[in-house]
Amino acid sequence: MDVPRAADFLRSFRPSRTTGLFVLFVVEIALISAAVPGYFSVYGLLDASRQFVEAGIIALGMTLVIITGGIDLSVGSLLALVSVTIGFGMDAGLPLWLAILAGMGVGTLCGFFNGVMVTALRLHPLVVTLGTFALFRGIAFAVSGAGAVSNFPAWFGVFGQTTIGGLVPVQLVFFVVLAAAFAIMLARTRFGRYVYAIGNNEVTARFSGLDTDRAKIAIYTLTGWLVSIAAVIHTSRISSARANAGFVLELTVIAMVVLGGTRITGGSGTILGTVMGVLILSYLQDGLLFAGVRSDWGLVVVGAFLIVGVFINEFFRKETR
């Protein structure tokens, strides 16, 4: 067998990126479990999901945004704004269920606002969401006066503190259902094809008769809606609403998505990949924390993983020019 054909033969066995990520995840859990006695337990692994479900839910929307070649820096600030809306809405006398609805409304509307700003004037999403990054948290601070609300009724804990059968945290169910829905939407529906079409070549997509503006507004609105859900879970979990919630969350979420194989320049990426990115990054941090490593190491590891992960992804990519 001559050399080029042997290379082709080997390449045909090359696992897909998501498979690779899955193997990486399993190896990671195995290594941590071997190195840290007492870490591995079904209960412990499931319980750890409380720490990442919020970022994970937002990452689903961010995946769509990044596939279209955009970015959303405002998600952490928006989480704070929704949380403050819920808390201070209740404080102002709204029944809690109504405050939750109001918060979800505000979050979805803010996502819509991002979408309109990006499309109406053809502004770069980075600039728009940098502005709303400051604006949303700015409103949250102005409304809350830098104070906090934490006198929630006991039933509010249902979104972030309870388990099903004493084992599965409720929010993990939310994440799994939403991830499945978004995976189907992205891979199997017309809307999903639009997302990739915009990311591959927006001008071509527009000239092919696709209403790219409407699709992009829908994507940013959906992201705002997901942020609202994450905000409800977050507020319920820590039982407190304050304007500094979700600080630097946007960067963690972007890191998860990119680690999951979505190209930052748009055009490719999958929900399953993002889920793997969420799991790999989160369990790495969880393992380090469990082992008693200072949490600052977590930042170093996240940063290094991000760069190395994308480097491996990009450097060995065959040029398709």
């Binding site: 890191a255 600052d296 940063g303 480097f311 450097f315």
Partner: peptide, 23 residues
């Protein structure tokens, strides 16, 4: 030369360097 886009490289650095200085 490493073909990682600058937004990713510098975001990774943002995390890693902050962690390093905290440590």
């Amino acid at each position: 030369y490493g073909r990682v886009s600058s937004i990713i490289t510098t975001m990774g650095m943002l995390f890693a360097l902050r962690g390093a200085v905290l440590l």
